[in-house]
Amino acid sequence: MVDPKEPKVALVTGSTSGIGLAIARRYAEAGYRVAVNGIETPEKAAKALATIGGDTPHAPSYFAANLADSAESTGLASSVLERFGRIDVLVNNAGIQKVAPVDELDPLDFQRIVAVSLDSAFLTIRAALPGMKERGFGRIINIASAHGLRASPFKSAYVATKHAVVGLTKTVALEVAEQGITCNAICPGYVWTPLVAAQVADQARVHGMSEEDVIKKVMLAPQPTRRFVQPEEIAEMAFYLAGEMARSITGTTISIDGGWTAK
């Protein structure tokens, strides 16, 4: 069983920027011991740690791992378990994107997207579950996407991978439903992050538009609110799902997409 006096341990993959950084910060503010993951230079990693834990109860720890490599994904979870003894909350947030027509997409890019977003989620879940089962508590939160529920052109690898993450989420939830463990997927719409910002030029190229038109007519067009979701909005939901009052929420997708999937 989990000792309520002990701080919970949260591993957040891809947490040195964007959504992951906001989630790690939210957990750190609440007193979690946070394992931060990325592939940053020492200087950038230090900056991320300062942003997350500069004034929090427990200093976050950085774990470098390239999640495109299955051995490093497995090693990441093992390193966190070795350092902290457990993983109470696992947030699979790491993801990459490549915008291109199917017949122009490099198979290596397809494989890399699958490795980072799907394979790493499977491997970290696999490593974290035995301890969660032993303690009778665990929260697994997979950051999927509105593209896990809907498709868009020129994003075959990303859409396929996020659909798979949703399927993985449901399956894991059913397997552990009686063991105090939940597994859910958050499906954001367009969130203004470095990953999204990096897409603008690619989207402009494949659509034959200006970058300004891409933002207005491609990215924000599906979202009835016509605004980017903020990373802190995703972080607040991830924080709620990690708590005791979310114990009956499992195997579901939670859309934070400005109304995109309501249409």
Score class of each variant (00 low, 15 high):
E6D: 13
K8D: 09
T13C: 13
G14V: 15
T16Y: 08
I19M: 14
A22G: 13
I23V: 09
I23D: 04
I23C: 10
R25H: 14
Y27T: 07
V34C: 12
V36P: 00
N37C: 07
N37S: 07
I39T: 14
T41P: 00
E43F: 09
K44R: 15
K44Y: 09
A45H: 01
A50N: 04
A50G: 08
T51P: 04
H58F: 15
P60Q: 10
S61N: 02
F63K: 09
A64K: 08
A65I: 11
L67G: 09
L67D: 11
A68G: 15
D69S: 12
D69T: 06
S70A: 13
S70P: 04
A71E: 14
L76I: 12
S79P: 00
G85A: 05
I87F: 02
V89D: 08
V91I: 12
N93I: 04
A94G: 01
G95H: 05
K98G: 08
V102G: 10
L105M: 15
D106M: 06
P107L: 13
D109C: 06
R112Q: 13
R112I: 08
S117R: 02
L123I: 01
L123Y: 01
A127V: 01
A128N: 01
L129K: 01
P130R: 10
P130H: 05
G131A: 11
E134Q: 13
F137W: 15
I140P: 03
I140E: 07
I143T: 07
A144F: 09
A146T: 10
A146E: 11
L149H: 09
L149M: 14
R150L: 13
R150M: 11
A151S: 15
S156K: 05
Y158H: 08
A160L: 12
H163W: 14
A164G: 09
V165L: 14
V166K: 11
V166W: 10
G167Y: 01
L168Y: 00
T169N: 04
T169D: 01
K170P: 05
V172D: 04
V176R: 06
V176L: 03
G180H: 03
T182C: 06
T182A: 06
G189P: 02
W192P: 03
L195C: 05
V200E: 08
Q203T: 06
G208W: 05
E212Q: 14
K217I: 02
M219K: 07
L220H: 10
R226C: 02
R226G: 04
R227C: 07
F228Y: 15
V229S: 11
Q230M: 11
P231I: 12
E236A: 14
M237F: 08
F239D: 05
Y240T: 00
L241D: 02
E244L: 12
R247E: 12
G251M: 05
T252M: 05
I256Q: 00
W260Y: 12
W260D: 07
W260R: 11
T261P: 12
